[in-house]
């Protein structure tokens, strides 16, 4: 069939088809050859590390690193000694890949996010002193008779922090309480500066237990003033129950030292006024030792902040699940990787 078609119609078909095919194909061939030869003649020696880093980078050319594109950043790392942790889209994967190529230690900084240290400030859970009808700004309202809410340390709900946020990370929930989206928060600190009462504070993102109160009033006063009925009364119960002594009470207010805190959440369960928020409450896993991998080195038992691990030297260790707070310190310390979270 094909042959017959070609035979009968071949002469005019070929004469119309062949020239364009030859011309375009020939042009492509010639250009390709010229480029191939040119790439040999005009070959510029580049550091092989630049190409490797370029492959490790995401290739988004977003400019977050401050260079014109991924190629510029790869070049800057190799030739200008630029820091390797500036690629935001690449994240830690890119940093580790570049660290391997450059033969340097990977240094990732722990991202900080803003946390509002007050649980009040909504439409229904604020204790109003008067009805404020002035300029809708916390900075203006705080000057009039100590602010529209009765607590002198609490949120007055006029959203200066939300307006200051450049990344739309702060939004209002149905009760008018400011909620911070940790995916969007960059830890720039604009809200910290904007709040006349410094309620937002920057906290490392791997910490999940916060004291949601900034009141320095005495316990009974704070209880009367707080609209959310969850003030810190400075009783010190959290401080006494903290296994690593991360909480100190000063000026009737408990503060968590985030360098020491292990995220165990015990304080949140002990707090009589529920002023401590625990994002991981009910989600914590317990540590478990795999008996076949454990060599009985006692490192885990020595490092456990709540002494939940017991066992003799060179014997398989056991974790008391009742006592374990799920801080995961033992998982990191175990040299044999015998502990997993279940």
């Amino acid at each position: 069939m094909m042959i017959i078609l070609l035979n009968t119609a071949s002469a005019p078909l070929m004469s119309t088809l062949l020239p364009p095919i030859l011309i375009v194909g020939g042009m492509g061939l010639i250009f390709g050859l010229v480029l191939a030869i040119a790439s040999k003649i005009f070959f510029v020696k580049v550091d092989p590390r630049v190409t490797e880093i370029l492959e490790a980078l995401p290739g988004a050319n977003c400019g977050a690193c401050g260079e014109a594109g991924c190629a510029g950043y790869a070049d800057a790392i190799v030739n200008k000694g630029e820091l390797i942790n500036k690629c935001a889209p690449g994240g830690s994967n890119a940093v580790f890949a570049i660290a391997k190529i450059m033969g340097v230690e990977a240094s990732t900084t722990i991202r900080k996010v803003s946390v509002i240290h007050c649980s009040s400030g909504g439409y229904t859970n604020t204790n109003w002193r008067y009805s404020y009808e002035g300029v809708s700004s916390c900075k203006a309202a705080v000057n009039i008779a100590g602010g529209p809410n009765r607590c002198d340390y609490g949120c007055m709900g006029l959203n200066d922090c939300m307006n200051a946020c450049m990344f739309d990370a702060i939004s209002l929930d149905e009760n008018g309480i400011r909620v911070i989206n940790y995916d969007r928060c960059t830890g720039c600190g604009a809200c910290v500066v904007a709040c006349p009462r410094q309620l937002p504070q920057l906290v490392p993102i791997d910490h999940c237990v916060y004291i949601k109160c900034s009141s320095k009033d005495k316990g009974n006063v704070a209880k009367q003033l707080c609209g959310n009925n969850a003030p810190c009364i400075g009783c010190g119960i959290c401080s006494r129950n903290c296994p690593v002594n991360a909480i100190t009470v000063k000026d009737n207010l408990a503060r968590i030292d985030y360098d020491v805190c292990i995220n165990c959440g015990i304080c949140a369960t002990k707090c009589p006024t529920h002023a401590i928020q625990d994002l991981l409450a009910g989600k914590r896993k317990k540590a478990e030792i795999e008996p076949e991998k454990c060599i009985g080195c006692t490192i885990c038992a020595k490092n456990c902040p709540v002494s939940a691990i017991s066992g003799e030297l060179k014997q398989v260790h056991v974790i008391n699940k009742e006592a374990c707070v799920g801080c995961e310190i033992c998982v990191q310390k175990c040299p044999k990787k015998a502990i997993k979270m279940v």
């Binding site: 011309i23 375009v24 042009m27 250009f31 480029l35 040119a38 005009f42 510029v44």
Partner: peptide
């Protein structure tokens, strides 16, 4: 199609020349 081919090849070529 011929112009696109020409321009693309030309830009690549010029890029190589000025890089060197």
């Amino acid at each position: 199609i011929a112009f696109i081919l020409t321009i693309a090849a030309l830009v690549q070529f010029v890029e190589m020349v000025i890089q060197k």
